[in-house]
Design a protein around this nucleic acid. Structure first.
Length: 499
RNA sequence: GCUCCUGUCGUCUAGCCUGGCCUAGGACACCGCCCUUUCAAGGCGGCGACACGGGUUCAAAUCCCGUCGGGAGCGCCA
């Protein structure tokens, strides 16, 4: 292995679905690794047995892959520095703890949670930062051993300086300095014997040879404790980069009440992975030339960790949707149809078994309807105007359009012409409208609106020149919901008018 | 409460390091116009910001100090 090789990691805890905030962290790690020809490690942080669940680890992996990320090492692909889930690394942590205990950099603490809580309350009340008092710090080692032997519960704490300053250079934030007087001795190992996050993360990052730790800003303050741990272990400290948080519109942490937050949800809503990828990269970073619609490979080329914004960003669904439209447009007709198909099948418009005829009809339909939608879920809704034809649900305005003087004349004239025609395509339709205009004297809105309502049972929608060929070519195909031809629609309207 | 991070159009940001090229640029959203048999889409245009107060300087969005706002951390959660 090359000593200079960049090695980064994404280390989610499997306590829920992949959130866009975490996805952005993963993505920035990925971009950085790819552009530096480095290695991305996926590590599952499942030391919290209460909240972790293996199903979530699997879903996390699926969602990351859907987004278009890959990694060289991880629980699913293996690697030279595994295992890659912390629950399988407990022995490693234990041996490090032994070393620290023997060297005196760590010690056993017998304080009970109740005592610590009281200490904390007192500090808060006195207007000070709650810091562990260090009561068990100077307990002689053999005395501690005896208490443990007698069955007393103890956790292991790191011995920290308690005074002075500790600074580090953050790749996105620059120089950051902390007063060590406000950092107490952190718990390394809980009295249950399970190691704590801030401890294992250090050991794992060292053992997995991580060179750059790119993570959320919520870890910024913990970095001091972690650096102290690196030092106690006599390990080299990696570079840090703390990314700002992703917020909802009201500037509070993005949560479900702001809308979709899980990557999985965006996939279901018909957002393209490439669009979400693009949007996430733009959250806190801007391309140098101002062109914001970018593919993965372009992002890899242009991305610059040093240019990442230091302030929090609000997740803008509107811009994501705009980007999604841009990415949809870049897809070939066939690819658009393929993306659309699952959503349309789920809505019951298209059969599970697609014939070639279905495919070519679908491509045409998607091409006609796609420009008007933000997502494939929206596309599903706009397919309703092709398949659903219900005169019972006409609105007031549409009803009066049909029943108006021109409406009745136009439709009767249209129905008459339709009877004598083989194949209604747009050219034929254009010819017919001319004739209708002459026969009825109706024109403009008075002419076209009744026709639109008669054919679509709606007051607005797709251009008729696109709508008619779509319906006519689809009418012969076998769909779960039969697609009515123009003449069938027209007959229904005539019957409706006669009532 | 304390500590740390942060503050440019409604939103994402460029510019800040290395003061003058800033009459502060772009994108989304919004508004208007054009296109049009509808609704969109699309094209064109418009509105719109340096949080505030002091300093330093011939000159400050840019450097310094303070205030205020936002976020995070202070756990035997991760």
């Amino acid at each position: 292995m090359n000593e200079d090789q960049v090695r980064v990691r994404f280390a989610p805890s499997p306590t829920g679905l992949l959130h866009v905030g975490n996805a952005r962290t993963a993505l920035f790690n990925w971009l950085f690794a790819r552009q530096r020809q480095g290695v991305l490690v996926l590590r599952v942080e499942d030391t919290d047995v209460e909240r972790s669940a293996p199903e979530y680890a699997q879903k996390l992996i699926e969602d990351l892959r859907w987004l278009g990320l890959d990694w060289e090492e991880g629980p699913d692909v293996g690697g030279a520095f595994g295992p890659y889930q912390q629950s399988a690394r407990l022995e490693t942590y234990a041996s490090h703890t032994q070393t620290l205990l023997e060297g005196g950099q760590a010690y056993h603490c017998f304080c009970t949670p109740e005592e610590l809580d009281q200490e904390r309350q007192r500090a808060l009340a006195a207007g000070k930062t709650p810091v562990y008092s260090g009561r068990c710090r100077s307990l002689p080692r053999d005395a501690a051993q005896e208490r443990i032997a007698s069955g007393e519960a103890a956790c292991v704490r790191l011995r920290t300086p308690g005074q002075g300053e500790l600074g580090f250079n953050d790749l996105v934030r620059g120089a950051v300095t902390f007063d060590l007087a406000v950092v107490g001795d952190p718990v390394l190992v809980r009295s249950s014997g399970l190691p704590a996050y801030n401890y294992v993360v250090v050991i794992d990052d060292v053992l997995m040879r991580i060179t750059h730790v790119i993570r959320g800003e919520d870890h910024l303050a913990n970095t001091v404790r972690q650096i102290l741990t690196y030092q106690a272990l006599d390990y080299p400290v990696p570079q840090f980069a703390h990314l700002s948080m992703v917020m909802g519109e009201d500037n509070s942490r993005l949560s479900k009440r702001h809308g979709a937050t899980a990557v999985h949800q965006f996939a279901q809503d018909g957002v393209l992975a490439s669009a979400l990828f693009n949007y996430l990269a733009l959250l806190g970073w801007a391309p140098p030339d101002g062109n914001e619609v970018l593919e993965q490979s372009e992002l890899v080329r242009l991305f610059d960790l040093k240019k990442v914004s230091r302030s929090a960003a609000i997740f803008d669904y509107g811009k994501l949707h705009w980007l999604n439209r841009q990415h949809i447009k870049r897809l070939s007709g066939r690819a658009q149809a393929e993306e659309a198909l699952p959503h349309l099948q789920e809505a019951g418009y298209l059969p599970r078994e697609m014939t070639d005829a279905h495919w070519s009809w679908l491509e045409g339909a998607v091409a006609a309807l796609i420009e008007r939608v933000d997502t494939f879920a929206d596309l599903k809704d706009s397919f309703a105007q092709v398949f659903d034809f219900s005169l019972e649900e006409l609105g007031e305005e549409e009803r009066s359009d049909l029943r108006s003087e021109c409406g009745g004349k136009v439709i009767r004239s249209f129905a008459g012409l339709l009877a004598g025609i083989e194949q209604l395509d747009y050219a034929a339709f254009a010819e017919m409208t001319k004739t209708i205009k002459e026969e009825t004297g109706c024109k403009g809105r008075d002419l076209f609106h009744p026709l639109r309502v008669a054919l679509t049972a709606r007051g607005s929608g797709l251009d008729l020149d696109k709508f008619i060929p779509l319906v006519e070519s689809g009418a012969g195909l076998d769909f779960p919901i039969p697609l009515k031809s123009c003449s069938e629609r027209c007959e229904a309207v005539m019957a409706y008018l006669d009532k």
